[in-house]
Amino acid sequence: PQVPQCKALYAYDAQDTDELSFNANDIIDIIKEDPSGWWTGRLRGKQGLFPNNYVTKI
């Protein structure tokens, strides 16, 4: 099955070790969508939390 993905609308710099940094237009694999607004994703071999208001699902 296809892994859900999202595209970064803005760059995000991780504020903690469990967060994921990314650049605008990066494509992130979505591991888990949480109602809190912090999703778990994977990018370039690293997994971490990121704010879903920085991305749009594709």
Rank of each mutant, 00 (worst) to 15 (best):
A24H: 13
A14K: 09
T17D: 14
N52R: 11
I58A: 07
P51H: 07
A11T: 08
F22P: 01
A8R: 01
K32R: 13
I30Q: 01
D18W: 08
P1H: 15
L20T: 00
P1Q: 15
N23M: 14
Y12M: 02
E33P: 02
L49H: 06
T17I: 14
Q47P: 06
G48A: 09
T40E: 08
D16A: 13
G48L: 05
I30Y: 00
R42L: 10
I27Q: 06
G41L: 04
K32N: 14
T40K: 09
Y54H: 15
Q5T: 14
N25S: 12
K57V: 07
R42E: 13
L49V: 14
N23F: 12
K46M: 15
L20G: 00
P35I: 10
G37R: 03
F22T: 02
N53M: 15
A8P: 02
N23Q: 14
N23C: 13
I58T: 04
D13K: 08
E19I: 04
L20C: 03
E19P: 01
A14C: 07
Y10D: 07
D26R: 00
D34E: 15
N23A: 14
L9V: 10
L20K: 01
K57P: 08
D18T: 11
G45Y: 02
D16K: 12
G37E: 04
D13I: 12
A24Q: 10
G41P: 02
K46H: 09
G41C: 02
G37Q: 04
N23P: 02
D34Y: 07
L43Y: 06
N23K: 14
A11H: 14
A14P: 05
R44Y: 09
D29A: 08
N53C: 14
Y10G: 06
P51W: 10
Q47H: 10
Y12F: 05
L20E: 02
Q15P: 04
D29I: 06
P35V: 12
D29H: 09
N52L: 13
D18G: 13
K32E: 14
P51N: 13
I31K: 04
K57H: 07
D18S: 14
G45F: 06
T56R: 11
L43N: 06
N25R: 10
L49F: 12
Q47R: 11
V55F: 03
D16V: 09
S36F: 07
K46W: 03
C6P: 00
R44S: 12
Q5R: 15
Q2V: 09
I58R: 06
G48N: 03
A11W: 06
L20I: 13
E33C: 08
K7I: 14
Q5E: 04
Y12V: 01
A14G: 09
L20P: 00
I31F: 04
Q47Y: 15
L49E: 08
A11S: 14
D29P: 00
Q15R: 13
Y12K: 04
D34P: 10
T17Y: 08
G41K: 00
L20S: 01
S21N: 09
N23G: 13
E33A: 08
I28S: 06
P35L: 06
Q2L: 11
S21F: 00
Y54P: 02
I30D: 03
N25I: 01
R42G: 11
V3I: 10
T17E: 07
L9K: 09
